[in-house]
Design a protein around this nucleic acid. Sequence first.
RNA 1: GGUCCCAUCGUCUAGUGGCCUAGGACAUCACCCUCUCAAGGUGGAGGCACGGGUUCGAAUCCCGUUGGGACUGCCA
Length: 484
Amino acid sequence: MLDGPRVRFAPSPTGYFHVGSARSALFNWLLARQSSHGVFILRIEDTDADRNREEWVDGIITAMAWLGLDLDEGPFRQSDNRAAHTAATEALLAGGYLYYCDCTGDDIQARKGENKTPGYDGFCRERGLTKSATTALRFATPTDGVTVVHDLIRGDVEFANHTIDDFVVAKSSGAVLYALANVSDDRNDRITHVIRGEEHLPNAPKQMMLWSALNVVLGDDVALPVYAHLPLLVNEQRKKLSKRKDPVATESYRDQGYLADAFVNYLALLGWSPRGDEEVVALSSIIEQFRLEDVSHSPAFFDVKKLNHMNGEYVRAMTCPEFTAACAPWVSPWLTAWRPTDREVPWSQEQFDPALFAKVAALVQERVTTLGEVPAMVAFFFLDEVAMDGASFDKVIGTDPLGQQLLGAALARFGEVPWDANALHAATIELGAALSLNLRKAQAPIRCAVTGSLVGPPLFESLEYLGREKVLERIAAALARCSD
RNA sequence: GGUCCCAUCGUCUAGUGGCCUAGGACAUCACCCUCUCAAGGUGGAGGCACGGGUUCGAAUCCCGUUGGGACUGCCA
C-alpha cells in the first residue's frame, strides 16, 4: 500500500456548520489533496446523544459538498464504533491504566477548597472501587515526567505530566468520552495527521498518553499522529467565534449568495497565505503551495468585508452565462434543486422572464458582491408595479418642478424615439438640454419613475429591455402621483 | 488561580539577522473615469506592544514585562 497522509475532519453535529470548522476541514482536505495518495476522511462524532441532531449531520455533509471538499472515505459515524471504544476501555482497565471513581463534581470542588491545582485530585486512585451505576472510569496520568506534543505549526509543546489531571475516559453510564473515542477511531482509521483547532491543544498530551497506552494493551503498535493545531478564528472582540453570538453558519453564507470558490479562497487566507502578492488564487495553486508548517500561530479575525471583496472578484470573473446560471437559486428557485432557505423571491414564477433576465444579468454582474443582492436590483424588470422609494421620488420628482417638466417631455419624446439604448441616451441628453440640465440631472427623474430608485443598473439599457409600453406607463404613473 | 498558546498597519498577512526608509490585500481618505450605483485607475494616511540583552548589524535570536486568548465537564 502506498503511504500518503491520512487526515480526518471530525465534527460533532451539535449545531450548524461553523466557519471555523469549515476552515479546519479545508486545511485537512488541502493536505490530502496535495499528495497523490492522501486520504481525507469525514467522521461525524455523534456520541453525545443529548446534543446531536440528524439535521446538523446533513448540514455538515451538504456544506462540505458545496465547498467542494470531497471525501475519500466516509462519512463515518463515531457511534458505529462503540464496540471498539468499549474494547479499548476494557483493555486499558485490564492493563491498569484506568480506575473507577465515584466522586461528584461537588465532592471534588469541596475537597479542593484552597488548592488551586486544576482538575481532579486523584482521590479515588487507590480506593479500589469497582464498576457500578455511579462510577466513572478515569485515566491515571503519570505523576512525573513530561509529555511533549510535536506540533507541526507550533513546534514542541511541553506539558509536565503532574499538571494533567486524571481525566474521565468513560461515564458511569458506560459511554466512552471524546478523548478516548477520538483516539480509538484515529487509530482504527490509521490517521497520520491530526489537524484541528487550537482549542484542542490541551487535549493532545492526554490523547498521546491514551494512544501509547493503547499500543501497549492492544499489542497493536500504531505510530502516533503528527499534530497541527490551527489558530483560532475570533470575532472583533478577539474571542473565539461563538455559534450563539457570531454570524458563523457556513450555510448562511451560501444562502446569501457567496460563491463556494470565493469562500474557500478566503478561508485559505485565514492563517495561511500564498506566495507572491496576489491573494485571489486558484484552488489548484492553493493545493500546490499549502504547507502546514507555514500556518500562522496567531488567531485570525473572520472579516466579512474582505470576504465580500473577494466574492465580488469571483462574481466578476465569471462569464455572463455562468453568472446568469449561478443566479438561478435566487431568481428562479422553482427551477433549482437547491435554493436559499432564508428568503423569498420578490416576483412570481409567472412574472419572471428568463430571457429578459439573461440580458439584464450583464447589467448587474459587476454591481453585486453576492448573488443574493441580485433580485432586489432587478425586481423592477419583473414586477408589474414599481416599488417606489418615497424619499427618492420626493427629491427628484415630487418637489422638483424641473423633474416633472422633464418627465412630461420624456413621455412625449419616448413615444416616438427609436427604441434602443443609444437613441434613448441621446434623447435624454436633448430633453435635459432644453431645461438646462446635464445628463446626470436629467436621468434622475426618469430612473426614479421607471425603476423606483435613484440607484441601479445602467438606465438606457434598462429602458430598452423593459420596452416602450412599460416605460411610458411608469412615467405617466409617476406624473399622476404628483397630483395625488 | 493553574496549564498552555499568541503578539508586524483598524483587519488578514509577507518577512526566518543585513535586500526593511517593513511589502501586499481588505477597509478608509482624496482624485480620475462616469447616466445613478458599482466596477476600474491613480495617489495618500496607517504597523514591528514595551524593556533589557546577544550581534558590526534585530521586526527577525534570548530573557523579562505587559497585553490578549484557549483550556481547566461523567461536552466535543
